Amino acid sequence: MTAKILLIEGKRNDGPSFVAGLTKKGFQVETVASGSAALTRLQESRPDLVVVNAATMRTSGKRICMSLRQEAPSVPIVLILEQNSEPIDKIDANVVLNLPFTLQKLLNRIKPLLPTEQKAVMRAGPISLDVDQRWVRCGGRQSSLTPRLVTLLKILMEQRGVVIERERLFSMVWDTNYTGDTRTLDVHVSWLRQAVEDDPRHPRYIKTVRGVGYRLDVDEPEKTRPIPPLNSKKLL
């Protein structure tokens, strides 16, 4: 899956632009011209990484990075500074680069900050799940998950918009035909809500359909997908 980069570049002509180079390398790049515009786009765009090209703006980038870190603590930040810029103390950036440098050097510093395997990252609305690394990102925060919670969320994301019966969901997650006691499922859903929801007591995404089961609601068109049979293989 293509990594998404939010690139903040100003209008100074003497600073180099990295839009074309990053796009050519296969990244999905969205550009904004200021830190305030980036904050506006941050939650809706949900980038994997933010690049602050302070060399194209009349700023050191320190305040922009601080605001970005407060808004989305888990999103990596790369700060690009002009040549011979003064060192910045306590900068809220994962990587700081001083011009001049090659595009390849920028790529070398960006790649370790991205999910290890982009193809392992699933997305449903604002929710991103890395199946291999076992983390979920939603609303600017990132949480680690147990293997069982990864399986549960993966199923809900694959069947988003579809109500999955409690017994069937339990059978799929625990890979068993015994569904006599599904209270364990309720506990795991509660833990998952703590990782995903802003207010777990009033969930926005993981909905309970009383007397039936659970459904994942996200801000995208609902899709109806067939639910695998009870004898399906483990997802993890």
Rank of each mutant, 00 (worst) to 15 (best):
L7F: 11
I8E: 02
K11F: 10
N13Y: 08
S17F: 09
A20G: 06
L22Q: 03
G26I: 08
F27A: 04
T31K: 15
A33E: 11
S34T: 14
S34H: 03
A38S: 07
E44S: 13
L49K: 09
V51H: 02
N53C: 05
N53E: 03
M57S: 02
R58E: 05
K62S: 11
K62I: 00
K62N: 01
R69Y: 05
L79D: 04
E82L: 11
N84P: 03
N84G: 07
E86V: 12
D89G: 10
P100D: 00
F101N: 05
F101G: 04
Q104M: 09
R109G: 01
I110G: 10
K111L: 09
L114T: 15
T116M: 09
Q118H: 10
A120H: 10
R123T: 12
G125D: 02
G125M: 09
P126E: 01
D132P: 03
V136A: 07
S143M: 08
P147C: 06
R148E: 04
V150Q: 03
I164N: 01
E167H: 11
E167N: 09
V173L: 05
V173K: 06
N177F: 11
Y178I: 13
T182Q: 05
H188I: 09
H188R: 14
L192P: 09
V196A: 11
V196M: 09
E197T: 13
D199F: 08
P200H: 13
R201A: 13
R201G: 04
H202Q: 13
Y205A: 02
K207N: 00
R215A: 14
D217L: 13
V218S: 08
E220R: 12
P221L: 07
R225D: 01
P226G: 04
I227V: 14
K233N: 15
